[in-house]
Structure formats: structure tokens, C-alpha cells
Design a protein around this nucleic acid. Structure first.
Lengths: 103, 103
DNA sequence: TAACTAAGCAACTTTTAGGTAAGTTATTGT
DNA sequence: ACAATAACTTACCTAAAAGTTGCTTAGTTA
């Protein structure tokens, strides 16, 4: 009962996982090839990376472009919807930076 | 390996759960008695509410004041550190509001 | 004296998130 | 012929998050 009763909850359901914000954050600088993006997220397993980008794509936050070459080449990029999270992602990052100082 | 390799990750470790942002959000308006606060978070179980406020208190984001009366009375409020999340919490809420429109 | 109250603890179960290891694909370089 | 490559997928497993139920406390009111 009562899922998404408030917008904040809705937002968290979209990006509130361990890896999603980090993946989105690293795409702020521009499109990335799959393997390169994954290496920017240290500690993520192959499975979780795939699962994370699948869901982000399904929710329209990132796009996925496949180049029909061998070996495969896939690029991910933020959609307009994904880019609209830029300020929030940077705020979260900035807040962490500031907060650490105060410990 | 590699926990908290970036500030965003650090932030998510502090507030990146299903309930924490919502509880913090509802405290933006001021201190609340435990039961009242809990009712503002529909769907949360008693256990998760207690666990959530315990962790937020442990991390210094909220304070807990106990009044030695019967039946018990407990009030929660944001600390300065918790208040510093105000802009982010409102941004997340606002983003959800805007994003829903576009669906 | 028994019910009621607000807060929250404890034991237990279920659900979800996340990790590991192996296999698949089609071409290119050796 | 065969290893190497990038980007997966699948099956299986563990760990963490969340839910459920029942209990405790001690004064107040019926």
C-alpha cells in the first residue's frame, strides 16, 4: 500500500540503489563505452553493472547504442531525462565532500 | 575493496536507503514526536522506523529527546548536519514532481 | 483490577540486492 | 586451427534489507 505517496519516494525508486547514482555521475562527462564506464565504477561486479544499465535504460535515464562490430562495442549516454539529474548528482557528491571535512 | 571511493558514494552510504530520505524530509518542517513522524511515513513498519531513526541518530543527522513520562514521549529533530541536507532533499522531491509530469 | 497508552525491542521469516563462475557470440590475428 | 576480444547472459548462491508478530514498561483512567 501507498508506494510513491510523495515525489521524493518516486525519485528514490528510480535512482535509489547502490550503483545507479555512481553510474549516472560518471556519464555526466559524456558518453562512454561499456567497458570504460564499468572500470570507472570500482567494485561493481559484471552482473550488477549490466543490471544497473539495463534498468537505467528501461527507465529512460540513459541510452544504449550498439555498434555491429566484432568484438562488440556498446556506448552509454545520458538522455535528456538523465541529464536533468545533473544538479542533484553533483549536489550529492559535493555534500559528501563537505561533510567528510567535518568529521 | 574500494568503499567510498568518491564523495557521492559516501553520501549514499549515509542516506541511501528506502526510508531515510523520507524521514529526513518530513523533519524539515521541525521537530516531531515519534508517533506523529511515523504516521507521516505511510507504509513503514514499526521496526524499520525504529531502525531508521536509530541509524540517523547514530550518524548525527537527527537528535532524539526523551521525556521521562508515561506513556513514553520521544521527539526527533534534525541536527545541523541533518539540516545541511535540506537543499538536496527538496531537490530530490522537486525532481520527482517535475519528472512525473513528463511521463 | 483490568484495559489503555507510546515507544520500541526481540525473534523469526520473507524478499531483494548483490556476488561468483561459467558459457556465448563472431571476427581478427597468429 | 585456435586463442583473444567486448559485451553480455544464465544459473546458482550468500548477505543484507525489510516485514510480521508478540512482548515490555508504568502510570492513568474506567
Amino acid at each position: 500500500m501507498n508506494a510513491n505517496y510523495c515525489p521524493l519516494d518516486y525519485t528514490m525508486n528510480l535512482i535509489g540503489t547502490k550503483w545507479k547514482p555512481i553510474v549516472l555521475f560518471h556519464l555526466l562527462e559524456g558518453a562512454e563505452r561499456s567497458g570504460v564506464l564499468q572500470k570507472k565504477v570500482p567494485g561493481i561486479s559484471n552482473k550488477m553493472f549490466t543490471q544497473t544499465v539495463r534498468e537505467l535504460e528501461r527507465d529512460g535515464l540513459i541510452s544504449r547504442e550498439i555498434y555491429p562490430v566484432v568484438p562488440p562495442k556498446v556506448e552509454y549516454a545520458l538522455t535528456a531525462r538523465g541529464k536533468s539529474l545533473e544538479a542533484i548528482l553533483k549536489s550529492l557528491d559535493q555534500w559528501g565532500l563537505e561533510d567528510k571535512k567535518g568529521i
